[in-house]
Simulated scan of single mutants.
Amino acid sequence: MLLLALSAPAAAQAPGPAPSSSPAQPAPARVPVYGYEVVRRFPHDPTAFTQGLVIRDGVLIESTGRDPSGVRRVRLEDGVVLEKRELDPEYFGEGLTEADGRVFSLSWINGVGFIWDARDLSLLSRFAYDGEGWGLTHDGSRLILSDGSTALRFLDLDTQAETGRVTVTLNGRPLGRLNELEWIDGEVWANVWQTDYIVRIDPASGQVVGVIDLSGLLKDPVQDPADDVLNGIAWDAKSRRLFVTGKNWPALFEIKLTGPR
Rank of each mutant, 00 (worst) to 15 (best):
A29M: 03
P9Q: 11
L218E: 12
A14V: 05
F92E: 03
V80E: 12
A118D: 09
T159V: 08
A24V: 12
Y129A: 04
S122F: 12
G164N: 11
E132M: 08
D220Q: 12
R41M: 07
L60I: 10
T245W: 05
P17D: 07
T167S: 13
K238G: 11
A190P: 07
D45V: 06
W108F: 06
G206M: 09
D147R: 04
D202C: 13
G206T: 13
A226K: 13
L217D: 08
D224R: 02
M1F: 11
V38K: 06
G111S: 14
D185V: 09
A99T: 08
A48G: 09
D185I: 05
P68R: 04
E180V: 02
L53Y: 01
D220N: 08
E94H: 10
E86W: 15
T169A: 11
D120Q: 13
G79N: 02
W235R: 09
G135V: 03
D45P: 06
D236L: 09
E94V: 03
V81T: 15
A190M: 07
R177I: 00
V211A: 04
E162Q: 11
L2R: 06
A29I: 04
L4D: 00
D220W: 03
L157C: 11
V71I: 11
P19E: 08
P203E: 14
V209L: 05
K84G: 03
W189C: 03
V31L: 08
M1K: 15
R56C: 05
R119K: 15
G93A: 11
A48L: 13
S205E: 14
L6H: 01
L124W: 13
V211I: 11
Y129F: 10
S107N: 05
F127C: 04
P17S: 09
K84W: 12
Q13G: 00
V222W: 09
I144D: 01
G172L: 10
I201P: 00
V166N: 05
S141G: 13
F114I: 10
D100F: 05
A226G: 15
P260G: 10
F154N: 00
F114L: 13
R200I: 03
N191Y: 00
V188D: 02
H44Q: 10
S69Q: 03
A118N: 09
S7L: 04
R261A: 14
L6K: 02
G172D: 10
R75K: 12
D45R: 07
A29L: 05
L136Q: 07
D156G: 15
A8H: 07
L124E: 14
P89D: 10
V209F: 10
E86G: 13
E98N: 06
